[in-house]
C-alpha cells in the first residue's frame, strides 16, 4: 500500500511538473529570461527557421528596416539608429535619440557606421543576409532578419509585430496599446469585409502619364484586399506592372485607388485629373472614374512603415466610409 501511494505521488508530481512548464515552454527551451525572436511563416519559407535567442533585452538596437521601428519604440526598446524615412516622420523623441541612417532599403549602406554604434541587436532586411548580415554576424553582432523593401503587406507587418510583442511585450503598456490598435483595426476591417464583399477595386500607382497597376500583393493592394475588395488585376508575376490600358477597359472596378509620389492626396488628385482630362473618352470608360468612385492617396501609401500601417488603413476606411455617404 505504501509503495502504491508513493508511486501515485511520484506520478502526480511528474504530471504537475510537465503541465506547469507547459506555458513557459519557450523560456524553458531556451532558458529563463531569454529573449526569443522567432521567424514568422513568411520568413521561414526563405530558410529562416531557427529563432534568434538573446540573453537579455537589447539596449542598443539598430533597425535597418522600417517595419519594426515604431513597434519597438512603442514598447520602449532602445534604438540607437533607425532608417531614414521619406514617407512620414518618426516620433520626435525617437528622432532625437536615434541616429537616422540612409540605408536605402538595405541595398547600399556603410556597414562601418553600424558596427561603431556597438549594437547588441541589428534588425536587417532578409535580402541582405548574405551580404551585410554575414559581416555583422562575423563581428558577433546578433542579427534578426525581417521582411523589408518597397512592398511589405499588412499580414507581414502583423506577423512581425506579434513576434516583437512576444519577445519584448511582457507587462508592457506599449505592447498592450499596439495589440489594442490591431484588435480595433481587425474589427473595423471585418465590418468592411462584409460591406465590400463582391466589390472590385483597381489600384493605380501613377506618375502621369505613366500608370502602374498593383495586385493584392502590393502595399495599397494588400490594404484593399484586407478590406474585402476583389482586386481586378490578377497577375501574380509581379505586384506592380505597367497598366495595359486596353485590358483596363474590361476591369469595370467599383472603386479606383490612386496613389503617387505626391506629398498630399490633393496634389496627386490634381495631377491625375489633369491626366484624365487629356483623354476623357478613355478614362470615363472606366466604371469607377465614370461614377466618381476614386480615392486619391499620398506617397505614404506606397511603402509601408511598420505599425503605422494601422493608421493608414484606419484613414483609408474613414475615407471609404465618407465616400459612401
Amino acid at each position: 500500500m505504501k509503495k502504491l501511494l508513493l508511486l501515485i505521488a511520484v506520478m502526480l508530481a511528474a504530471v504537475l511538473a510537465v503541465g506547469g512548464c507547459g506555458t513557459d515552454k519557450a523560456a524553458g527551451e531556451h532558458g529563463v529570461g531569454k529573449i526569443v525572436l522567432r521567424y514568422p511563416e513568411a520568413l521561414q519559407q526563405y530558410g529562416f527557421k531557427e529563432p534568434l535567442v538573446l540573453d537579455k533585452i537589447p539596449q542598443r538596437v539598430v533597425s535597418l528596416a522600417h517595419t519594426p521601428v515604431l513597434a519597438l519604440y512603442e514598447m520602449g526598446v532602445n534604438q540607437v539608429a533607425v532608417p531614414q524615412n521619406k514617407m512620414f516622420s518618426w516620433p520626435d523623441e525617437l528622432a532625437k535619440n536615434a541616429q537616422e541612417l540612409n540605408t536605402a532599403m538595405n541595398d547600399n549602406f556603410d556597414i562601418e557606421s553600424i558596427v561603431v554604434l556597438q549594437p547588441d541587436l541589428v534588425i536587417l532586411g532578409y535580402h541582405a543576409k548574405d551580404s551585410y548580415g554575414k559581416i555583422l554576424e562575423n563581428e558577433k553582432i546578433p542579427v534578426y532578419y525581417v521582411d523589408a523593401g518597397h512592398v511589405v503587406t499588412y499580414k507581414s507587418v502583423k506577423e512581425l509585430t506579434d513576434v516583437l510583442i512576444e519577445a519584448f511585450g511582457k507587462d508592457n503598456a506599449g505592447a498592450d496599446k499596439i495589440k489594442e490598435c490591431f484588435d480595433n483595426l481587425e474589427a473595423r476591417m471585418e465590418e468592411m469585409r462584409k460591406e465590400n464583399a463582391g466589390k472590385k477595386v483597381m489600384v493605380l500607382q501613377s506618375a502621369p502619364p505613366r500608370h502602374f497597376i498593383q495586385n493584392k500583393e502590393g502595399t495599397l493592394g494588400s490594404m484593399a484586399d484586407m478590406l474585402g475588395y476583389d482586386n481586378v488585376y490578377k497577375n501574380t508575376e509581379s505586384s506592380l506592372a505597367l497598366l495595359d490600358r486596353e485590358q483596363a477597359l474590361g476591369y469595370e472596378p467599383d472603386l479606383l485607388l490612386c496613389v503617387g509620389g505626391s506629398a498630399t492626396a490633393e496634389e496627386h488628385q490634381q495631377l491625375m485629373e489633369e491626366d484624365f482630362a487629356k483623354n476623357p473618352d478613355y478614362w470615363n470608360s472606366i466604371k469607377a472614374i465614370r461614377e466618381g468612385h476614386v480615392i486619391y492617396l499620398p506617397v505614404g501609401y506606397i511603402a509601408s512603415g511598420g505599425i503605422e500601417i494601422v493608421d493608414r488603413i484606419n484613414s483609408l476606411i474613414d475615407m471609404l466610409e465618407t465616400a459612401e455617404k
Binding site: 540612409n102 536605402a104 518597397h150 506618375a207 502602374f212 506606397i302 511603402a303
Partner: peptide, 13 residues
C-alpha cells in the same frame, strides 16, 4: 539610391 522607395516611374522613363 536615395529615393529607392519610389522608383517605378523613373524605371518606366
Amino acid at each position: 539610391m536615395l529615393n529607392s522607395d519610389n522608383l517605378s516611374n523613373v524605371l518606366a522613363f
